[in-house]
Design a protein around this nucleic acid. Structure first.
Lengths: 112, 112
DNA sequence: AGAAGTACGCACCTTGAGGTAAGCTATCGC
DNA sequence: GCGATAGCTTACCTCAAGGTGCGTACTTCT
């Protein structure tokens, strides 16, 4: 999907914030507890390092998560969810519930 | 965004159903009242006929809207929302509310 | 000495949603 | 006959998200 125009509607903005392929998963994992970069890689099998970095940075810019760098060696970076990110997770959960409802509906229709 | 894998999470299914560029707008318009094809074209400036047809067909396949053909000449087709589509519109509204909240948050941050 | 882990950046390529333009069937108005 | 309208279908093109792979600076493990 293309996301460019403001669309006047707030949904476009929400989609802009969560539209990435891995963002919902990241949001879900981080809402449980903070994680380090390499831990997130392991949690999301199939994500490339480039894209993981990208999406984390975008979510940080959107204020959904915060990034904390510890000046140690070897380097350590921890990502954690913000209150705003937590509220988005709630909204996503509503959509997710509808999705499950929809899947039920579909399997019922296919059975008919 | 790519939408392929089931993802175990229902959110992917919901996104699959609503992910198209015009689907939320269509859902919104049709939740007000039924419309004909050409009316929807006029309501969504910029949509091409091909894509409008595509998205309407997909939404019909997902059970979000129903398509009624009147065997007249010139041909007449009316699209209306289903109860399932209506429930999705509610879920979308929650996300939309978050989007507005997020925009407020962003403009506050930029002001700082 | 060499391998491996950490948290990336950069260059290139693939893929599919969406856009563009044309055609198609049939009727009505001029 | 000529164009307009309604509701599509088909073929082709574009463009950005995401994937692949390599490079990096530093350290610890073996």
């Amino acid at each position: 999907m293309r996301r460019k125009e403001p669309d006047s509607c707030g949904f476009a903005a929400a989609l802009q914030a969560i539209g990435g392929k891995w963002k919902t998963s990241l949001l879900w994992e981080l809402h449980l507890r903070p994680y380090r970069f390499a831990e997130l890689r392991r949690l999301l099998p199939g994500v490339s390092e480039k894209v993981l970095t990208q999406q984390l940075r975008q979510m940080e810019a959107d204020g959904l998560i915060s990034r904390r760098v510890y000046d140690e060696v070897p380097p350590r970076v921890e990502y954690s969810i913000t209150p705003l990110g937590f509220s988005l997770n709630d909204a996503v959960t509503v959509m997710s519930a509808w999705g499950k409802h929809h899947e039920t509906w579909k399997s019922q229709r296919e059975a008919a």
